[in-house]
């Protein structure tokens, strides 16, 4: 019996999530099943709906497998949001593994409606600015920066910047005409939105220090589709999901950062590294965000402190 999985996601076919994560994964499925388990990948929401609806599409069987940013369906995965807190991530591979274990032990019921295949995070977020070079906390004051998630918006506000909400495609034009002074994203997508041509400075945080922020991606599958698979194909899928695979995906995301960074440098963007001593100050300025999240979890009936601690411990455990 041959099975073709409909894989649906919101990014373009050039994005590393498509080219370096999903496509190789699909190839591996095909190879290990002797071409009995294949995928058809539908990028850029080709099967309809909006990015926040992707998770429900996997639940309802509109698609068989989806990839989504957990933060898009805000409030759906409140416990998983812990990994979006500032200075949580060590490296993408370890944090992706930790995210998997965390959901297995502490947040499994958040994903009860689907068969979760993997959780992974993107590489460390950086700050790209047109004019002002960011070296210390004070430099954020009054800067208009575009941020991707709820937690990063709050983070920037706490550090003195004024976060501007706008759709990603609007970012290049807004930067080129000075409507915003910069944006906060990882390297991997920066050239795709022409950051290498538009900004002068990139502030990268000391990589021995935890990352400024990251975001969690989910790969989820329709339950009925999984149950309907014959035993041999189930086995192939089981071998290609879980903690190991999550770590591999995180590693692929991190690897996608390197060529993108090269592009930035080649275009003459100055990259400066914020030293650990300065990052201590940034962390202090944003610690209240952790507390607010803990309190929010407590209010929802969970043990916020324990959740935060476990996420940190798991991340540490996988970080070599």
């Amino acid at each position: 019996q041959e099975v073709t999985l409909k894989v649906h996601h919101f990014l373009g076919p050039q994005a590393p999530q498509h080219a370096a994560v999903l496509a190789p994964w699909c190839d591996k499925l095909a190879k290990e099943s002797n071409d009995k388990l294949k995928c058809q990948i539908f990028p850029a929401m080709q099967l309809g709906g909006t990015p926040p609806q992707l998770y429900d599409q996997a639940r309802d069987g509109i698609a068989d497998v989806i990839l989504v940013l957990a933060g898009y369906a805000a409030n759906r995965f409140p416990r998983m949001e812990v990994f979006e807190l500032p200075f949580m991530m060590t490296n993408a591979e370890a944090t992706s593994r930790a995210a998997w274990d965390y959901q297995e032990t502490l947040a499994k019921d958040e994903f009860a409606e689907t068969k979760l295949l993997a959780t992974f995070v993107h590489g460390p977020g950086n700050i790209y600015t047109t004019k002002k070079k960011i070296e210390k906390l004070d430099d954020f004051k009054g800067l208009k920066l575009r941020a991707p998630t709820r937690q990063t918006n709050k983070l920037l506000a706490m550090m003195g910047a004024s976060p501007v909400g706008m759709p990603v495609p609007a970012v290049p034009e807004a930067i080129s005409k000075g409507v915003i002074d910069g944006a906060v994203i990882p390297y991997e997508v920066a050239p795709a939105i022409k950051m290498n041509e538009l900004v002068k400075h990139t502030a990268e945080t000391d990589r021995s220090y935890n990352a400024l922020y990251t975001a969690v991606f989910l790969v989820a599958m329709n339950k009925a589709k999984y149950d309907s698979l014959p035993a041999d194909l189930k086995k192939v899928l089981d071998a290609n999901s879980g903690g190991e695979v999550s770590g591999m995906f995180g590693k692929a995301m991190l690897a996608a950062d390197a060529p993108a960074k090269e592009k930035m440098l080649a275009s003459g963007v100055e990259i400066n590294v914020i030293p650990a001593a300065e990052l201590d100050k940034w962390k202090k300025a944003s610690d209240a965000l952790d507390d607010a999240w803990v309190k929010d979890m407590d209010a929802k009936g969970f043990d916020g402190k324990k959740l935060l601690q476990s996420a940190q411990d798991l991340t540490k455990k996988y970080t070599k």
Binding site: A73, A74, N75, R76, R150
Partner: peptide, 8 residues
């Protein structure tokens, strides 16, 4: 039931 909400 799922509590879906806008981001900000």
């Amino acid at each position: 039931k799922s509590g879906d909400a806008s981001m900000l």
